[in-house]
Amino acid sequence: MIQRELLGTAQVPGGEELRLYRHDRDFMIVLGHNELMSTRKWGSEEALATMSYERIRHAKRPHVLIGGYGMGFTLRAALKVLPDDARITVVELVPEIILWARGPMAEVAQGCLDDPRVTLLMSDVAPFISGAQGDYDAILLDVDNGPDGLVREENNVLYSPSGLRAAKRALTPDGVLAIWSAGADPAFTRRLEKSGFAVDEVKVAARSNGKGAKHVIWFASTRQ
């Protein structure tokens, strides 16, 4: 029987410890008892990028902000569908996440961080949203397991009324805010609507083959 191997740990600023495991050929990043991400299931993370692009397809030189690199599934999917003149800003809070991507998970990363369209910033994504004004055609958030600060309490601001209003200001007139979640949250859907977004809540299979659990992505459009 193949045992799970601990490859590294990382302290989330203001939060708990992340652990990177390898089991056979698969990797998983774990927070406490929660498996945040795994190479066994990544269909909904890819959908976060591809379904967002469907909603901004007519944008010229689109600029996409991705909050949280994770295992890079969303970034790689975005690079496949976005045009050559697109810009992608990736904001990652935990340095070890990038070290793992360039180290033990380099084969998984497939060099996506080195694409000339990508700018990587090591920081909290919230200030980049609150300080922007019509800068992004799409904001893709996958920094928690849903619209609450699971990874760290400070992330709650992203899903608060003030955080959602900041996201709306940061988007272009036809922009979209996309938020990944492990499950539904009707109260958050109402909060998006009260913040002035037109909301499309989509259930997406966790696995790329359409099987497995269903995750949720909220696509919140600035234009009603």
Rank of each mutant, 00 (worst) to 15 (best):
Y21H: 15
R25W: 15
R25C: 13
R25G: 09
D26F: 12
F27S: 14
I29H: 01
I29F: 02
L31Y: 08
N34R: 05
N34I: 14
N34T: 15
M37D: 02
M37I: 13
S38A: 14
S38Y: 03
R40C: 14
W42S: 02
S44C: 12
S44W: 08
E46H: 08
E46T: 05
L48H: 06
A49E: 07
Y53A: 03
E54H: 08
E54Q: 07
I56Q: 02
A59M: 13
R61W: 09
P62M: 04
V64A: 01
V64T: 04
V64R: 00
V64K: 02
V64C: 06
L65D: 09
I66P: 11
G67H: 09
M71N: 00
G72V: 11
G72S: 11
F73M: 00
L75N: 08
L75D: 07
L75I: 08
R76M: 13
A78E: 01
L79V: 11
L79H: 12
K80N: 10
V81P: 02
V81C: 14
L82V: 12
D84N: 13
D84L: 15
A86Q: 04
R87Y: 10
R87G: 13
I88W: 02
I88A: 05
T89H: 10
T89P: 01
V90G: 07
E92Q: 05
V94Y: 06
P95I: 08
P95W: 02
I98V: 13
L99I: 02
W100G: 00
W100V: 08
A101V: 02
R102G: 00
P104Y: 06
M105Y: 05
A109F: 01
G111C: 04
G111I: 04
C112H: 03
C112P: 01
D114Y: 11
P116C: 08
R117V: 10
R117P: 14
R117A: 12
V118W: 12
L120M: 05
D124R: 08
D124V: 00
D124Y: 01
V125Q: 10
A126P: 00
A126K: 07
P127N: 01
F128D: 01
I129K: 06
I129V: 11
S130M: 07
G131V: 02
G131L: 11
G131S: 11
Q133I: 07
G134A: 08
D135E: 14
Y136G: 00
A138S: 14
I139W: 09
L141W: 10
V143P: 13
N145Q: 11
N145F: 15
G146N: 01
P147F: 05
P147Q: 10
P147G: 08
D148H: 07
D148R: 12
L150T: 14
L150S: 00
V151P: 03
V151L: 13
V151C: 12
R152Q: 06
R152T: 14
E153L: 09
E153D: 13
E154K: 10
N155V: 11
V157M: 03
Y159R: 06
S160C: 06
S160D: 13
S160K: 06
S162D: 14
L164H: 09
R165C: 10
R165S: 12
